[in-house]
Design a protein around this nucleic acid. Sequence first.
DNA 1: TGCACGATAATCT
DNA 2: GATTATCGTGCAA
Length: 209
Amino acid sequence: MPLTAPPPTIHRLTRADLPKSTVALARYLIGKTLVHDTRAGRIAGRIVETEAYLVGDAAAHSFRGMTERNRPLFLERGHSYVYFIYGNHFMLNISGNRDGVGEGVLFRAAEPVEGIDLMRRHRAMPASAKLEDLARGPGRLAEAFAIDRSVDAIDMVDGKSALWLGTAVRKRGALGESVRIGITKEAERVLRYYERNSKFVSGTNKLNA
DNA sequence: TGCACGATAATCT
DNA sequence: GATTATCGTGCAA
């Protein structure tokens, strides 16, 4: 039987830690830790894949201006934006620019670090399920981390939120980049970032070269 | 009407 | 094993 390692020490990132441009933030977040402290316990994972959605970008929800749904994208960098799509899935994003500028970063995949049993339970997967299937893909990530509308529009770097960003638990590997996945508009823009050689990223091998 | 997806099946190497 | 096709689902515009 493998010994259970003690939970890693994770320190909260502050807003000052976050780069001030959305693209820089999307790159910066690779290797950092996403944490959700739930009633049932802590869920934490290494962020291994992100995508940036920018001003003037037809694929961004903010493209047509502020609506009731996308308002969090226009908040100062560090706020969550959660939305529901395809009748099945929640997507977790974080705002990336100044107050009033609608940009964000989509969390696409994470490597489970802590609360793995909770993740399995949320995903309704057996204990035998492979670790890399728990949070590979934005819908799976949200499900594993118990993300829903209750954590929409919260400040993830205010030092006290249940959903927050933490320091890296280990050094990150080389950064890769590619086109974004699953969109039709502005599909040629290279705004997806991932940790190379990670088994926990989504997409085809070709995209992850 | 169409979507920042995932599970499954079909069709490859 | 890897890539590609199909389709359900609820909601925003």
